[in-house]
Design a protein around this nucleic acid. Structure first.
Lengths: 159, 159
DNA sequence: TTTGAAACTGTTTAGAG
DNA sequence: CTCTAAACAGTTTCAAA
């Protein structure tokens, strides 16, 4: 086994990994607190954090807002299958996805389904309207399958 | 239509929605900058932010770290089907999920598949090992189906 | 609930090793 | 690449409205 080569990374210093772990846990942790926790000076910590941002290791800092508090009490995963792939149609579809109202994330997948859409909507009526108006009606879409999300949990490792 | 009632929320002030929108975009935005942007005093902004946290509207602040930079170059969605539901077995499975190495998120779904696991691993060998060691080997698991993630995009609306 | 003002804490730059 | 130290900026408390 092992047909695909390993993926060695340009090497990330242990200090940087520690900084990332802390920021992934609490993105509003003050720079000097991070510095103290990882054992470097605040100015050094700032330099490293900036480098991590500039090199794309840190993509951004986001508040995790409960969709239900915004009136979006229903979440769903929608598997989307596209018609035999015309690149233009597909790219028009993919370009529209992140702008659709209620889309939390979209995943481009291998396998039978082409896309997986994570959406949050106010109620089941809105879910039906979302699928009918934005997916079924789209010329690139061949088939969709919607599953309600009963609950979800963040992993303790990455992201 | 409309068999399921709408989901009216306890009402969230427009100021709070504005604060949430800014923090979802940039969780490290300074309190006084948020205050100015939404047109309130920094002290008021602080009070409201604290209330949003305490009421669970804001669940946390997280850095979005590129898994590839951590040597996790492969991401996948794994659909998991469990055996006819013994509550104890299921809860033992769900309790273990977030602790599994490489799990970014887990979704409990309606429909044919019970769970959807979003994972990040170093290579395809690690993916195979993850499925074999943690899923196939588990007594509660009846079936799994793995799809590679070619790419993903965050929505512009919530979360 | 809101605020301004003061006290406090954290950030950032500059310069040297 | 790291640090100390100083200047600067942001956070937080508090008393008043």
């Amino acid at each position: 086994m092992g047909f695909v080569p390993k993926n060695p990374q340009p090497a990330l210093a242990p200090v940087d990994r520690a900084i990332l772990r802390l920021l992934a846990q609490d993105a509003r942790m003050p720079n000097n607190a991070i510095a103290e926790a990882v054992g470097i000076a605040p100015s050094t910590c700032l330099t490293r954090m900036r480098a991590l941002r500039e090199h794309g290791v840190i993509r951004g800092f986001h508040a995790d807002v409960d969709p239900a508090a915004l009136g979006l009490g229903i979440q769903a995963m929608i598997a989307v299958r596209l018609h035999a792939h015309t690149k233009e149609r597909i790219s028009s579809f993919t370009a529209e996805i992140p702008r659709l109202p209620g889309v939390i994330a979209a995943y481009h997948l291998s396998g039978a389904d082409d896309y997986l859409l994570h959406v949050a909507v106010p109620d089941t009526d809105a879910l039906r309207d979302f699928v009918l108006d934005h997916l079924t009606a789209h010329p690139a879409v061949a088939h969709t399958e919607t599953s309600l999300i009963f609950g979800h949990m963040r992993g303790e490792s990455v992201s």
